[in-house]
Amino acid sequence: MGLLDEVELLRKIPIFSKIEPSKLKLLAFTSERLTYAEGDVLFEQGDAGDAAYIIIGGKADVVVDTPGGPLIVATLDENEIVGEIAILCDVPRTATVKAKTEVTTLRITKDLFFSLVVEFPQIAVEIMRELAHRLEVTTARLREAVGKPQ
């Protein structure tokens, strides 16, 4: 798979969807493509966040440590981005991500991510939009949960 295929993939991801292809090409060129064998860990809960990952092939489990042992809270699929929260707000990883099958990712380092945001404000706008959207969803769910009778 070459650079152009990766650009196509990136366009399918919501926060990148409205960004010019030439910028996406730069993003693809400057980020590292990494393949993880089944069972390999992308990052560990509690680690410092140094990169975000875009899954471009395979599936990965999001695992959270609970008092009752590790719990799979979600499974990531192709075209999903993971780990962006930790690099945006400098908090430790909130979950462990583990390759469920062989997983191919684009690894966008924190420095790279911020350079892109600084260089190309459209990306920042798109991320804001995406985050606002997520917040909206979460708030709606919260309202729903609070509104529910006990």
């Binding site: 030439s22 090409k25 730069l26 060129f29 400057t30 420095d111 350079s115 260089e119």
Partner: peptide, 17 residues
């Protein structure tokens, strides 16, 4: 030229990539 023309000179990407 296509990838890097828009970046300001001295941007770290030149050095790295």
């Amino acid at each position: 030229v296509e990838l890097f023309a828009d970046l300001p000179p001295g941007h770290e990407f030149f050095e790295q990539f």
